[in-house]
Every structure is written in C-alpha cells, then in structure tokens.
Design a protein around this nucleic acid. Structure first.
Length: 597
RNA sequence: GGGCCUGUAGUUCAAUUGGUUAGAGCACCGCCCUGUCACGGCGGAAGUUGCGGGUUCGAAUCCCGUCAGGCCCGCCA
C-alpha cells in the first residue's frame, strides 16, 4: 500500500518507486504532458504523466479533476533544472506516474475550491456547512495540527516532566447554582430529574485532591449555555489542572514553565520568565482592564486628586460622588483624532457612550499652549493644568482624553478607547507575545441587579489569610494569565476548611441549607482530611486561536457552532421524535410568537 | 432582549449610486497546447440579485418585514 506521504519526498528518494494516495489539488494539462499536484495531510508533490514516459497513466490523467482521490504508483525523479520549484518542500522532485488508479471522483460541483485557500476567502457560512472541505484547506489543516501539537506538548510536559496524571470527570453531573446557565439533560431512569453538563470540572478536581491524586490534569470539555462571541463557544475545551501542597508562587512558576514549553515546542518562541505580574488594582488603574494588552503603551493616568475641587463640575462632581477622573494620553493624537470624533455623533464618542460614559473631555497640547473647551480652560488654574500635563507626560501634539464618572464606567470607557486608538494608530506589534499574571482579585463584586455579593472568580477561591476577617473586602488568592489582552487562563488557591467555605457561601447569600443541598458532598469531603490545594484552567481553544494568529475561536475548533449556537454541518440542534420525549417524560412548552398582521 | 454590518452565477467579487440584455476571475463543459506549478489560448453553459411585500414608468440599488451569517452590548462565577 502507501509507501510515503506526498510532502515527505525529497531528492534522497530519487530512483525509488513509491505508492502515494491523496487528493488532486490541481491539474495542469498541457496537451502533451499533464501535471498533477497530489495532496495528502503532509503536503503536495508534483505528479507527471505524458504519453511517452508514462503511457499507461496518461489516459486516466486526462480524466482527473480537482479533489479526485487517487492512488499513484510512480518513480521519484529529479526535476529538470529549469523546473525546480522553490516554493514547495518537495520542489526538487516529481513523480512519473506509471499507474494511476481513480479511487473516487467528485460527483457534485465543489461548493468552493480547496486549493485556492489563501488567495480567496470563502463565506464562513459555507465553510461551516461543508466543514470537511474547509478542513482540507491549508489554513484549517494547519490549525488542527497546531492544536494537536499544543495538546501533545501539554501532555509531554505535565506527564513526563511534572508527574501529573489525567483523570476523566463526569459529563453528566449535577446542576450547581452560581455561574453560567447550565445545559440540562433529562434522566429517563429518574423522571423529572436532570443532569447538567459541566461548566468546568471544578468540584471533581477538588475532590480528587481530597482523594490524594496530588497532581491532576484533564483536557476537559466544558459547557455553558450563554450567548456566543468570536472568542466564546457553548462547548469549549479547558486544560484543567489542580495540585496539592503548593503555594501560589509555586503554582505560577510551574505554569510559566508549562506555557513556555508550549510556546517553545509549537512556535519555537522563547519567552522570559518570570512573567510580569500586575495586581488587579494596578491593572485597572493603569489600563482600565483586568486583562490588559501590554504590547503597547497608552497607559491611563488618574488625575482625580488634581481636579477634585476644580470649578469644572463634570470633574469635581465625579470625584465628589466617589468616582474618578482619568486621562488617556494619546501621543500625536492631535493629528489623528479630530474634535468631531470626540463629540456626540463621533465614533469615539459612540464607543465611550456604549461603555456608559456621558461624554469625553479633551485637552490638546499645542506649541506652548493648550487647546480645550472653554469650561475647562476657565475652571482649571494654571497650576492644575501644569500638573495634569506633567503627570500625563504630555508633550506637543498630545491629545488628552478625559473621562469623569463612576470608576467602573471610566475604566471601561478608557479601556475601549485605548484599544480602538491603538488599533487605528497601528501601535500593536502583531507578532509580539505579551504574557502577564493578574493577581489579588477581590473575592467578591456587587451585583446591583440581585443586590448581593457575587464571587468574582468562584466561591471556592481562598482569601488571603490576612484578609480573612473581613471577607466582603478581602482579596482572593486568584490569578489570571493574560495573553495579548485575552484571558487565557485563571485559577486560585482553594478553600479547604469547611467553616471558611461556609462563611464564603454566606457572604454570597447562599444559606446553609442551600449550600448543603448543592455542595454538601464537597463540604462533607472536606471533613475527612483535605490537603491545601489550588489550580488553574486554560481556555485551550482561545490559546490555540492566539497561537494560530486567528481572530475567532471557531478557527481553532474542528466543528464549531454559529453565533446562533447551530451546527451548519449537522443542523443541530433539531427536533426529536415524540417517542423520545415521551420516554423522558419531557414536553416542550414553547409557543411560537403569534404573527402580527 | 438590543445596536451595527453582510447576503448578486458553484465560488470570490463588480454593476457609473434608480435606467434599457446584471458583468469579470476561478470552478464546471468542449476544443487546442510536451515543462507547468495561481500554466496558457479559443469557445460554451451557468442568475427567482436570500425570501416576501411596498414605492416607482422602471428596483440588485430606495422603504417595510422576514431568514441566514458576522461583530458588539446585555449575558458569560
């Protein structure tokens, strides 16, 4: 049968007779000689057929078309010196096709061409409908391969170097409060009861620590029934890890080694360790975000104290009511950003408004003077202006964009503006990889809608010991790994004392009865000798997306869903037979909206 | 639930901004071509302009609705 993969053939094989299988990538028929590019998963090699050298195959070679599946038996030959192809790894050789066997033809018009991949983009809708063809194309087959290499690197490092063992945890599990919406599965054997698909293996991996596994990992499928984004799918894959008897510094160091091993193995890139660390507070202060992209500057500057008692009410009012006044200094921003764009109706104003800001103020630094609206000019003293210029490092040509509002709003607004402006001004070095840890997250944040505290990370996250006495304001021993502005991983040290866990449940408004109902098994497990432990989970799809240089997580997944959570290939989800529902004792209550006439 | 963008031949795009027969590359079919590699040449077939309605003498183009895909907000411990 097959003796070689197409892409592996080199000058050293010249003279050998080989048997190849693959797809016809392209056919070039010169009337007297036919060239075929034969493609398999390893690459492409050129096949030659003509009536003189390969009389037995020429007739069939004329019949072949793109994407036909063929078997080729032929002689590996040196290409004529004027016909070498430097673009192909196999470009020194070609195969004289002594035999061609047509294994399968293409019977329908191709919905799109496989071999033009890079030159001609195809509508994603079509790519997803005919995903098996899309995956034949260079770009997607590379992405599949890259993903495999990442998985492989993870296993080599964690298993061979660090002694982790992979344990599989249930897909049919129980629904838990908090967190995302669950996917539910009815139990036929237990009518009216439901399994939930796991949002993550969180509870099981902690139980495995109680079990003495010590170092656990899993490449785990997770499910969250929430709306989709370019970087969010309803089912996704985590690299999930948990380890016992390690402190935060040790866990971060081990994970840095893991990430560096992956980068080195799949990209050949060396990243210096340790990775930079930013506390949550510092990240918000300097970037307005807990996942800052640090590949470019444009850091925010807090000027609240400088304008707290200025006559400009927008500024002083924001500070008085507990908010902030922060500046996004944009070098050369005067030339790039016109006033029209900052004012109502402008694109930057729109971005700010979407983030909740009511408006943007500005100061333009001109030669020896500043240019701004009258209300600021008249209400800031020369000293205040001078201090602002000094603190923001403003020079001639700088545009200072001000946002004054509640802290959340200011940070969200300037974060988005910072990203938009960096992109517009081409400040983002696309090839750079910036990794950093964000640490010292708060334990909780206030959910205004439900009027209660919510766990920022999850309710099993341990507070810093010194903060334990006031849990509501405590910092968590939690950490996120940020990769070019994307959160690619996050984890924490866990609570392993039942009483402290109970206090955290109380803080988020989970009564003892509820906690015992939902998590009783975990609390009980903690009564039997639980090691201190902690862990982390990475969004594997997101990591692969970034390593592949893609903008969408879908390009890192073989068979992804559309934004409407549909699979265009299989047409899932779909209706089911009424008998299936009867067996499950389940009925849909869905009522289509009546059409208005 | 909301905002924005897209939908024209199998496909990727165009159509002088409301005008007469909706064009081009690739793919497909036929003929020609012995060194191409995005081969080349000649010819051909291929369109309910997503779908439905409206405005208009006239709609791919304007309006309304609807479907599908995308980006975002909300949501995602």
């Amino acid at each position: 049968m097959r003796t070689h993969y197409c892409g592996h053939l080199r000058a050293e094989h010249i003279g050998e007779t080989v048997t190849l299988f693959g797809w016809v990538d392209r056919r070039r028929d010169h009337g007297g000689v036919i060239f075929l590019d034969l493609r398999d998963r390893s690459g492409i090699v050129q096949i030659v057929s003509d009536p003189v050298r390969t009389p037995d195959s020429y007739g069939l070679a004329e019949q072949l078309r793109n994407e036909y599946v063929v078997k080729i038996v032929g002689r590996v030959s040196q290409r004529p010196s004027e016909s070498l192809n430097a673009k192909l790894p196999t470009g020194q050789v070609e195969i004289y096709a002594d035999q061609i066997e047509l294994l399968n033809a293409v019977r329908k018009q191709m919905p799109f061409q496989v071999s033009t991949g890079e030159q001609e983009p195809v509508r994603e809708e079509l790519r997803l409908r005919y995903r098996y063809l899309d995956l034949r194309r260079e770009r997607m087959s590379q992405n599949l391969r890259l993903r495999h290499q990442v998985n492989q690197a993870i296993r080599r490092f964690l298993e061979d170097q660090e002694g982790f063992i992979e344990v599989e945890t249930p897909i049919l599990t129980r629904s838990t409060p908090e967190g995302a919406r669950d996917y539910l599965v009815p139990s036929r054997v237990n009518p009216s009861e439901w399994y939930a698909l796991p949002q993550s293996p969180q509870l099981f991996k902690q139980l495995l620590m109680v079990s003495g596994v010590d170092r656990y990992y899993q490449i785990a499928r997770c499910f969250r029934d929430e709306d989709l984004r370019a970087d969010r799918q309803p089912e996704f894959t985590q690299l999930d890890m948990e380890m016992s008897f390690m402190n935060q510094a040790e866990i971060l160091a081990l994970n840095e080694k893991l990430i560096c091993y992956i980068l080195k193995t799949v990209k050949g890139v060396e990243v210096p360790q340790p990775f930079p660390r930013l506390t949550y507070a510092e990240a918000l202060d300097r970037y307005g975000s807990d996942k800052p992209d640090t590949r470019y500057g444009l850091e925010l500057v807090d000027v609240s104290d400088l304008v707290a008692d200025s006559g400009f009410k927008v500024f002083s009012g924001a500070v008085k009511s507990g908010g902030l006044v922060k500046v996004l200094p944009v070098p050369d921003g005067n030339a790039t950003v016109s006033n029209v764009r900052i004012k109502p109706g402008g694109d930057l104003f729109k971005i700010a408004a979407e983030a909740g800001a009511r408006g943007l103020a500005y100061i333009r630094v001109r030669e020896g003077d500043i240019d701004t609206i009258g209300a600021i000019k008249d209400n800031l003293s020369d000293a205040q202006k001078q201090q602002i210029l000094e603190r923001t490092g403003a020079r001639e040509g700088h545009l200072l964009l001000f946002c004054a509002d509640a802290a959340d709003t200011v940070n969200a607004t300037l974060d988005r503006l910072r990203q938009a402006i960096a992109q517009e001004m081409n400040l983002i070095p696309a090839d750079q990889i910036n990794l950093l840890w964000v640490t010292e997250f708060p334990m909780f944040e206030w959910n205004a809608e439900e009027k209660r505290l919510e766990a920022l990370h999850h309710p099993f996250t341990a507070p810093y010991p010194e903060d334990k006495d006031d849990l509501k304001t405590a910092r968590a021993q939690a950490y996120d790994l940020v990769y070019n502005g994307y959160e690619v991983g996050g984890g924490s040290l866990r609570i392993y004392q039942p009483d402290l866990q109970q206090q955290v449940f109380e803080a988020i408004g989970l009564s003892e009865a509820e906690a015992s109902d939902k998590f009783g098994f975990l609390l009980e497990a903690f009564e039997y000798g639980t090691p201190p432990h902690g862990g982390i989970a990475y969004g594997l799809d997101r990591l692969v997306m970034l390593l592949a240089g893609e903008d969408s997580i879908r390009d890192a997944i073989a068979f992804p869903k559309t934004q409407q959570a549909r699979c265009l290939l299989t047409n899932a989800p779909s209706g089911v037979d009424i008998h299936q529902l009867k067996e499950l004792q389940v009925a849909s209550t869905y009522q289509p909206k009546p059409k208005e006439s």
